[in-house]
Amino acid sequence: MPKKLRGRAADFIFAAPLTVAFVVMFGFFAIYGDGFFEADNLQNVALQSAALCIVAVAIGLVMIAGYIDLSVGSVMGFSGVAAGYLITQSHWSPVWASIVGVALGALSGLVNGVLVAYLRFSALIVTLGALTILRGATFAITPQTFYDFGPGFAVFGSGHFLSVPIPVWIAAAVCIAATVFLQYTAGGRHVYAVGVSQEAAYFSGINVRRIPLFLFVVSGAAAGLAGIITIARIDAAPSGSLGVGFELSALTAVLLGGVSFAGGRGSVFGILLGVLFLGILQNGLAIMNVSFANQQIANGLALVVATALEAGSAWLSRRMGVRRLARRPVTTPVAVGREPA
């Protein structure tokens, strides 16, 4: 269906400033970064971005619906450390420990969701509170680090399938599921509608409570999953650092990817691009021996510059009407308009 394609093209062009920056950056590192453009390194970037991708896509959904979830970093820590506890202290099987870890994430999402969607507390405040509370709870399990989960569990974090790391497969599955949900289910359309205008969605008969509730649960579960993948990859569950600051990285990636704070806008493709952008930026800078401090500065700058680019392209498009959505170039209509009366 060509109309559909045009919508895709529009999405793509909307993400264009980021796409262009991505290509430029990638080219730069490929030329100047020693060992950047090698299969091993790129696979490493993908592996390290997997957890971020899962969390970013999930909070991206929450943000498209017009809400926000800041608790993900601590949910990740809590789920990871809880699973680590179950494996090392209670000698549970890794599979059950993982399931419980994800379920704990979903449960915290459920609490957030009920408070925000049904009791109508501010999402910012509720999830900020959860961020602090769950970090405390993580320390209550242990102030230290659990190690050594056994070889079976390690496969989950660093094993390969068809020579692609398993966490990358999982992240890909999450991206595909989220795309299918947003584009090809009724619920996905409802998410956008709620994000654009709750009142109009409400008058159209959409359940404006259940949708954010569901999304908060998804986001909690995704953070739990990211926690499990991470402890499996590093074979340790450090309660002092697991997931710390992760909510900000995820938020950065989501905003880079063109999801707006106001809701109603964004795509999984854009978010994925945002995640990879951050991952490659960090990897490339590390390869080029840029200090950690400067890497952090670069991350922040990337976000600000991308926002400026987007604002600039929005301004341009306003100046030019919606021409950039037209498939053909703009010459003909202008010529018509310029004919003297």
Partner: peptide, 15 residues
């Protein structure tokens, strides 16, 4: 006089 405006390839005002 002769006011024209095009939106997305389709003219909203022509002359």
């Amino acid at each position: 006089r002769g006011l024209s405006k095009v939106f997305g390839g389709s003219p909203a005002l022509s002359g």
